[in-house]
């Protein structure tokens, strides 16, 4: 398969440095040597990173954060903040130091181990964040899954004549999705949520959904979209000439037609903005979806389905126009 991968994010042009592997070792060595760290770092210029547990990932995020927080003066590339691995004892001693937590597991850990620390949650879903029910000035987030409206508008961008969106949902999510989809009516899109009450009702429900919608908007729900079902869902949709949008970038590689996503560099850059705000005002901006995003399209699937796609730039522009129009009619 061939893929088109287009960057729309503001991170465009930022080079990716390849860090030697030992950098990750150093990072974790630092974690193991708290005394050394404490001695060399001013806590007010510190940022904790509660990682995923994957050293390579955590190191990469740490590097990007430091880079994003570097001074703008060309002669001064020192980071505004030093990123240190999150440790309970350090955090408890410096409860005003913000913690960037990667993923729900990390967020949960920080909440348990240092309940006073301000937290910026990355790589979490809106659902997870909402369930925390925490004040956003102390615990904020940049959501990982693409916003539902943007995904829907991507479908509309690819199929300009589309008027109906089909969504599959488990009973507990149906109402939430329904509410989130409601503003799309102003963009000329009607959405209908089809409830998958059990695993064996998935295909019958999908068949009805495909009868309704011009495309299937796949939302991140692993009980519906999982290794056992994904091929079945995609092929059923394609056999009925219905495209599938979302739920994430990885699904596009697997055969979904397209999805928006936030590249890591963009996510981290926006996270740096949240951290700066926190430093200046003592509070995070409200939790939100990242502003920057990119579009991933599976052009081979498009060709197979005779879907006419403009080039990446045109697609990006059209999606931005559609988002702007929606914001105008449903701010």
């Amino acid at each position: 398969m061939t893929f088109s991968h287009h960057r729309v994010s503001k991170a465009k042009g930022i080079g990716r440095r390849v860090r030697p592997v030992f950098a990750s070792m150093v990072f974790w060595l630092l974690a193991a040597l708290p005394a050394l760290a404490q001695a060399n770092v001013m806590m007010e210029n510190t940022l904790f990173l509660a990682g995923t547990g994957n050293p390579a990932v955590d190191q990469r995020v740490s590097d990007l954060l430091e880079k994003a927080l570097s001074g703008t003066d060309a002669t001064d590339n020192r980071p505004e903040l030093t990123v240190l691995p999150f440790r309970e004892d350090q955090a408890r001693k410096a409860p005003s130091v913000p913690v960037v937590a990667l993923g729900p597991e990390a967020v949960t850990r920080v909440l348990q181990e240092s309940p006073e620390s301000p937290i910026l949650a990355l790589l979490v879903n809106e659902g997870f964040y909402s369930a925390l029910n925490a004040p956003s000035e102390r615990i904020s987030a940049l959501f990982y899954d693409p916003p539902l409206a943007r995904q829907a508008l991507l479908g509309k961008t690819i199929l300009p004549h589309a008027t109906r969106i089909a969504v599959l949902a488990r009973p507990e999510n149906a109402l939430r999705y329904d509410n989130q989809l409601a503003p799309l009516r102003d963009a000329g899109l009607e959405a209908q949520v089809f409830v998958v009450s059990s695993d064996d009702r998935l295909i019958p429900t999908l068949v009805r959904a495909l009868g309704y919608g011009d495309f299937l908007l796949a939302l991140p729900d692993d009980r519906i979209y999982n290794p056992r079902t994904i091929k079945h869902i995609l092929l059923t949709a394609y056999r009925r000439s219905r495209i599938v949008i979302g739920p994430r970038q990885a699904y596009v590689k697997a055969g979904a037609l397209a999805s928006t996503y936030t590249p890591l560099t963009t996510l981290v850059r926006e996270a740096a903005g949240y951290i700066r705000t926190h430093r200046e005002k003592g509070a995070f901006p409200p939790a939100a979806y990242p502003l920057g995003y990119a579009i991933e399209v599976n052009r081979q699937v498009a060709r197979s389905l005779n879907i006419l796609l403009g080039d990446d730039q045109a697609l990006e522009q059209q999606l931005q126009d559609n988002i702007r129009q929606l914001q105008e009619v449903a701010p």
């Binding site: 995923t52 547990g53 994957n54 390579a56 990932v57 990469r60 990667l102 993923g103 729900p104 597991e105 949960t108 790589l123 979490v124 879903n125 659902g127 997870f128 990982y144 899954d145 991140p220 692993d222 009980r223 979209y225 999982n226 290794p227 994904i230 994430r248 970038q249 990885a250 699904y251 590689k253 697997a254 590249p263 890591l264």
Partner: peptide, 27 residues
């Protein structure tokens, strides 16, 4: 890296759902 990130990105992963399998499968 992104693949790894994705692996840990979903809240359901912590609860031992199929997310990790999903992404590994897709990858």
């Amino acid at each position: 890296l992104l693949g790894c990130l994705v692996l840990f990105a979903n809240p359901l992963h912590a609860a031992g759902t199929a997310t990790g399998d999903m992404e590994a499968y897709l990858a």
